[in-house]
Design a protein around this nucleic acid. Structure first.
Lengths: 191, 191
DNA sequence: CCGGAATTATTTGATGCCAAACGAGAGGCC
DNA sequence: GGCCTCTCGTTTGGCATCAAATAATTCCGG
């Protein structure tokens, strides 16, 4: 056992032994745990294969991707699509702008809003990068048939939908009226 | 369309339109994209429901979890299991140690190695926290039957295995002998 | 045993990340 | 026009994150 990476089977065996005394939702636990294992492994691989030669981070790529697919868009919508907070997007957009891949323009009718779009350089990058990226997506999914991929995607989509539809209500319920403790980090009030 | 969150179906439609001219692995792309959407959504929910009252981050919880399941363990092995780099673990362990949830001990036979374990306080926390955490895992998986959860877990496990078995070789192949550009960030050489 | 090679964990630097606070602008009302 | 409120994007603070450099220790050949 010592000095070797544990397989998922070994881990699940250890969990079984450790948690024998608990009543638990075993299948759901395995699903959630593996979502994160897979996400981390896939992200790691894509960053170190397709993205690294272009010095892009995962999130930077996702933002470029969103702009490529949707064209010019407001920041709140880009953040939403990319699955990051608007504060994070501000930083990412700054980085991408400094590399001339993304352009920032203020909304013609509302001075508060900002529009993001790809520069021609950004478009060109995506056209070259995307096929390589997609090839690595195919590589990580090699063990699965096309149909199994769709099944997988459907299961995951159902989880996302569940959280979009019922997540906020659930969190409210759990609180039962009490206030949620503020995060340890985050900006402090001035007074 | 404006001012509303786009559904996954709409996104996939836009992708279809934008990428009509590319040859692409559609199913694999959908699977990979949804892995990340789901991972982010699930993590967000768990942090804001089960973990927040205990002021734990996702990664902090995962590290406690690994120690709870496996007992005392060496740091490299904890990092491996938790899916983070050993450098990151150093920071997390420091945080958890400062909160008296984790203890650090040096290896009796090898002064380079460090052993981590839960303190009694950490054990107690996990015993109280785990049921709540598992309940939220069950909540996010509500739309799926137990069997569908297992199917999902199996598909994801296959992807992780693919990367563990062939990922490194694949990245070497892609490089074709060339050196991978260093990351933009990271420690600089002294000279 | 001595000195270099190998193997640990830690430090470092740049970036990512969130939530809450903030400031700038828009819109309604009187 | 002067306010008050609402709604944007940005800033802030505290961590998390990685890979490479470095420090600390062990191992091995002579």
């Amino acid at each position: 056992m010592a000095g070797r990476r544990r397989s998922i089977a070994e881990t699940e065996q250890a969990v079984q032994e450790r948690l024998g005394g608990f009543e638990l939702q075993r299948e759901q636990m395995a699903a959630v745990a593996n979502i994160h294992r897979a996400a981390a492994a896939v992200r790691q691989h894509l960053e170190n294969s397709a993205l690294r030669p272009h010095d892009l981070t995962w999130t930077g790529f996702v933002v470029l991707w969103v702009l490529w697919i949707w064209g010019e868009a407001e920041t709140w919508s880009v953040a939403e699509e990319a699955g990051i907070s608007k504060g994070t997007l501000t930083g990412i957009a700054r980085t991408l702008e400094s590399r001339h891949l993304v352009a920032r323009a203020s909304h013609p009718e509302d001075g508060r809003r900002v529009l993001l779009s790809l520069t021609p350089e950004g478009e060109e990058l995506m056209e070259r990068l995307f096929p390589a990226f997609n090839a690595e997506e195919a590589f990580v999914a090699t063990p699965l048939s096309a149909e199994e991929c769709l099944r997988l995607a459907n299961g995951l989509r159902a989880i996302v939908a569940q959280l979009e539809e019922h997540g906020e209500e659930r969190r409210r319920q759990l609180l039962g009226g009490r206030d949620l403790a503020p995060r340890r980090s985050g900006r402090r009030s001035r007074q």
